[in-house]
Design a protein around this nucleic acid. Structure first.
Lengths: 256, 256
DNA sequence: CCCGTTCTTTTCACTAGATGGAAAGAGTAT
DNA sequence: ATACTCTTTCCATCTAGTGAAAAGAACGGG
């Protein structure tokens, strides 16, 4: 929201429409989307027609509403960086979830947010919200803190300086200076805890996943309702969590 | 590949580039993509830059290669038609897979192909290839046959007339007339079998998944290596398969 | 049944901005 | 050092995208 060098062409507009459609699970009309993306209706109409003809959006003639199309879904499973990570992690995540009885998630950094690539839920009646494909802010989540702790100093500084840190709960760390100290601690200890900092009533602990080269590739976390999860419980999972992360790491293809 | 009314604008070209990138899991250079989409390099370069700035593609400066970006992944999980189906189906599919010991898949029709939305694998050492997001031809797969059997007659005719049916194995039905008869049978019996018609050594059986209104929403199949799966075994799963499909159907939100 | 309202879809003259050949820059191999 | 290949930038040309406005479609209240 700071660098104002957004492209403006038809492609950028078309992609913006796709993103806007992402926020309308029930579909949206031309007019609604035009509002969302601040463009003339006729322009949006034409762009949607193009996208529909390529199956990037689907159009329901009876309701005159547009939704994201199958092509997007199809392409997503070819995002190789995600696929290889999630594939490598899935079995281990299942084991870890079984061992802890709680939700295990895998996340990477995307546009300064922690993006969840994979989730293994708990059979318990009360679980953790959020699903694969969601992203949450870095400063209030265990995975987010682990992920930014792996950034080079200049990028971390830029992030800490450039953003405002919204308070999601009373526990959220919003002061850049305190956050900086916190991240240094994460760097030193190689794990991060979020103690009801994003969602009231949820605690989580995360560790880095590193490939054979030691490169930080993702963060792995266990999240659980606070009422059944003390700080001790959380730290008790650390060994298993680290073992799981290591196992995933060894299975990772070394890219580039 | 018959109607030649493909759009040509910058948006269509940009989307074509995304699709092309989907076929390059290891990433591709500007030049390679330009070749793939038959466009001038400078044009492709500019479009890629736009897409990169919006995270639809990622660019590795060291290798100068482009890949599909996180945004595509993020959006995909908001393709509501897919998400609701897959969510509704997942638990039942797990049970069915456990009961049969084989791979269970859920598919819908997309651009005259059978697109797999969800897959629950087998713990057995020899499994079924193909993954979520892949699509296969309709005439040689059990799910494909079920899905096109639900088309209105005119659309089915158009499909049968308009396409050439490639022989994937010796068993593939390639003659439109025979395929038509076959589909009539599927309509009558409400299930379809693929007997090593797509992959040598793989047999599968599929049934329709219908929502509360009786609308065909997907196809559910069990696939297994032929060496451990006789025709009888396959048909033996039919009852469980139908029960599973019915269960999924009741759980489906009635869209539109 | 008609008219007002609100949405979608199409049209078209204008010109913003996309185009793509060419040249410069950056690597890499010979 | 030279040649080759690929990436990146440039810019004069003119295509093709733009968006206000009009036409069409659908709905509902009086």
């Amino acid at each position: 929201m700071s660098t104002a060098d957004e492209p403006q062409g038809m492609l950028a507009r078309g992609l913006a429409i796709l993103v806007a459609l992402g926020n309308h699970p029930e579909g949206a009309s031309v007019t609604e989307i035009a509002r969302d993306v601040s463009l003339p209706i006729s322009t949006v109409h034409r762009l949607l027609a193009t996208e529909a003809s390529l199956s990037f959006v689907s159009f329901d003639p009876s309701t005159k509403r547009y939704r994201l199309g199958f092509k997007v879904f199809e392409l997503a499973h070819k995002v190789s960086s995600v696929a290889s990570l999630a594939d490598a992690a899935r079995p281990t995540m299942r084991e870890l979830s079984a061992a802890t009885g709680e939700t295990v998630q895998l996340a990477v950094l995307s546009e300064n947010r922690t993006l969840f690539l994979e989730k293994v839920g708990t059979p318990q009646p009360i679980g953790i919200r959020g699903s694969v494909g969601d992203s949450e802010s870095v400063h209030a989540t265990s995975t987010g803190k682990v992920l930014i702790s792996g950034l080079p100093d200049d990028e971390l500084d830029a992030l800490l300086t450039g953003s405002a840190f919204e308070a999601h709960t009373a526990n959220t760390i919003t002061d850049p200076t305190r956050l900086r100290e916190h991240i240094e601690q994460v760097r030193a200890e190689q794990y991060a805890v979020a103690d009801e900092e994003f969602d009231e009533g949820v605690r989580a602990i995360a560790v880095p996943v590193r490939d054979g080269r030691g490169q930080l590739r993702a963060a792995l976390c266990v999240s659980a309702p606070a009422f059944r999860t003390s700080a001790e419980t959380l730290h008790g999972w650390l060994t298993e969590l680290r073992a799981a992360a290591a196992e995933i790491g060894t299975r990772l293809p070394l890219s580039s």
